[in-house]
Design a protein around this nucleic acid. Structure first.
Length: 507
RNA sequence: CGGGAUGUAGCGCAGCCCGGUCAGCGCGCUCGGUUCGGGACCGAGAGGUCGGAGGUUCAAAUCCUCUCAUCCCGACCA
């Protein structure tokens, strides 16, 4: 095998980004397509990341007062029909249950029977079914606020699917709240967007931009939708979490009313928000390289691969003994609030084979221990965000301390790298021609990675947004909160604008 | 759901145009041995009703029809 510049993943990001993405998932053994069209099988290494996401978010939600509950996967069609915009938004991607029974047919197979009086929609989101419960639970202003979260699976019958980014079934968390006042509901919406942003940055090591969605991009039925937007390594935007202020739309649809402090009946104000297994796709595309997955330590399923190296049984015994001692020494070790897990890999493969296996899986640190190290009471330590051959010798006495320091440094480092990448690829554009040039690939036949985020003025008209979308497939990702008001001219029509928005291609 | 491409062993592919020793290659896997600090080597071996269903033919991986799935582009979306 040639030893020069071979990458573990082929093609590279530069050569074919979407193929590279598929190959990383395969090489890291995160998930695979199932026999069911559009649905994925999430494998242990990938599912462990989701479990970590759940564990961390659940704690963050608990700290903000939420409680978990569970609602049916089936939503009666009549519930769904109550909110017009909502219906319009989801009608084209619903799976519908119409029968309740199977009966033998003439050819030895089965036929459906027992038609339901009312079809059930397999939930694409749960506002309406949860609303029906909330209507019963809320009677008085004293019942508010009501803060409920659900971890669930969701079905949206997508035409075009990609592992983690868009599948027919996916896992998510949906949080639904009911409030007495508009202000309180709005505050809730904002607070939880901030929670998502904090989570993305501190755990996933992905910098995100918080902002408001445009009329055309908001959640069907919402008054306002807010999102966190992240830049992937192909410079496209990935909406990584959303938070919706639903006004009284769903309260009216589901009759969520309460007696206010004056004894009058008022419709409540509701919010909803969620993140999904799509976050795993974000992790892959934000951090991974041409050798495979790179996982931020704070969300990694395991943190350290221990790779013993030996030639014969005698060496094996000596090396494994120390390797196991190292593994034991990490038991109950915490990386901030995350337990540190190790994997001792003593499979009968060459050391480099085992090394590359863990590199592709994205484990943050690798410890190599061979006879020489045993003799010198040290190990070789390598981190995933450096070159594969980049290793340092560390005395056993300092191993734990240095490994933890390295994990922290790596967490900060990959965040900094992602942030630098986003900053390098975010520019202010005020000229229409320049804007079009920025978003037009040089080679239309084989579009290269190009563009990025453009901070440009937009007048707020949907026509301008549509025109840009039709021309360039570029949309307003969000109206960021952190942009100052300033006078400018709409990048499309030239009319006055007071604020820059983020334009980008997106997933 | 429209346009394009692809489905041959676990993975990656050749063969298809011109039907007939075309069931093949590389990696992986199993066994034995030598190896082991940067994707090892030698030897032996296992593994596929060529995505599925029909059809044409003496004969189909190869031609025709239908169907399913995946990937890319578009529309739609977390």
């Amino acid at each position: 095998m040639s030893k020069n510049k071979r990458t573990a993943i082929e093609p590279t990001r530069q050569e074919n980004y979407s193929e590279w993405y598929q190959q990383v998932i395969k090489a890291a053994d995160l998930a695979e397509n199932s026999e069911v069209r559009g649905c994925m099988v999430i494998k242990p290494w990938g599912y462990a990341i989701w479990e970590n996401i759940q564990r961390v978010l659940d704690r963050m939600f608990r700290e903000t007062g939420h409680r978990n509950a569970y609602f049916p996967i089936f939503i009666p069609k009549s519930y769904f029909e109550k909110e017009a915009e909502h219906v319009e938004g989801f009608a084209k991607e619903c799976a519908i249950v119409t029968h309740s029974r199977l009966e033998p047919d003439d050819s030895g197979g089965l036929k459906v029977a027992g038609e339901l009086t009312e079809p059930y929609i397999v939930r694409p989101t749960s506002e309406t079914i949860i609303g029906a419960s909330f209507a019963k639970w809320v009677n008085s202003y004293r019942d508010l606020p009501l803060l409920i979260n659900q971890w669930a699976n969701i079905v949206r019958w997508e035409m075009r699917t990609r592992l983690f980014l868009r599948t027919a079934e996916f896992l998510w968390q949906e949080w639904h709240t009911v409030h007495e006042t508009q202000e309180e509901a709005m505050e809730e919406t904002m607070q939880m967007l901030q929670v998502y942003a904090t989570f993305a940055q501190d755990y996933l090591a992905i910098p995100v931009i918080q902002g408001e969605k445009t009329e055309g991009e908001k959640f069907p039925g919402a008054v306002n939708t807010y999102s966190i937007e992240a830049m992937m390594q192909d410079k496209k935007a990935l909406q990584s979490g959303t938070s919706h202020f639903l006004g009284q739309n769903f309260a009216k649809a589901s009759q969520i009313r309460y007696q206010n402090r004056d004894g009058e009946f008022d419709y409540a104000w509701t919010t909803s928000w969620g993140v999904s297994t799509r976050l795993i796709g974000a992790l892959i595309m934000a951090h991974s390289d041409d050798n495979g997955f790179v996982i931020p330590p704070m969300i990694a399923p395991a943190h350290i691969a221990i790779i013993p190296i030996y030639r014969d049984d005698e060496e094996k015994e000596a090396v494994l003994k120390v390797a196991k001692e190292i593994q034991n020494s990490f038991k109950k070790t915490m990386l901030e609030d995350v337990p540190v897990y190790t994997e001792l890999d003593d499979r009968d493969l060459t050391s480099s084979e085992r090394n590359w296996y863990w590199i592709k899986k994205g484990i943050p640190l690798r410890i190599e221990i061979g006879p020489r190290d045993v003799a010198s009471q040290s190990v070789m330590l390598a981190r995933r965000d450096k070159e594969p051959r980049d290793k340092v010798s560390v005395p056993l006495t300092e191993l734990k301390e240095q490994a933890l320091a390295m994990l922290k440094d790596m967490q900060a480092g990959i965040y900094a790298r992602a942030l630098a990448f986003r900053n390098e690829n975010t520019i202010k554009i005020d000229d229409n021609k320049e804007f079009y040039k920025y978003f037009t690939p040089k080679n239309a036949e084989q579009p290269e990675i190009h563009g990025g985020f453009a901070l440009s003025h937009w007048c707020g008209w949907m026509e301008c947004e549509e025109r840009i979308k039709d021309d360039l497939k570029v949309t307003v990702r969000c109206i960021p909160f952190d942009q100052p008001e300033e006078d400018g001219a709409c990048i499309s029509c030239g009319k006055p604008s007071q604020r820059r928005v983020i334009f980008a291609k997106s997933y």
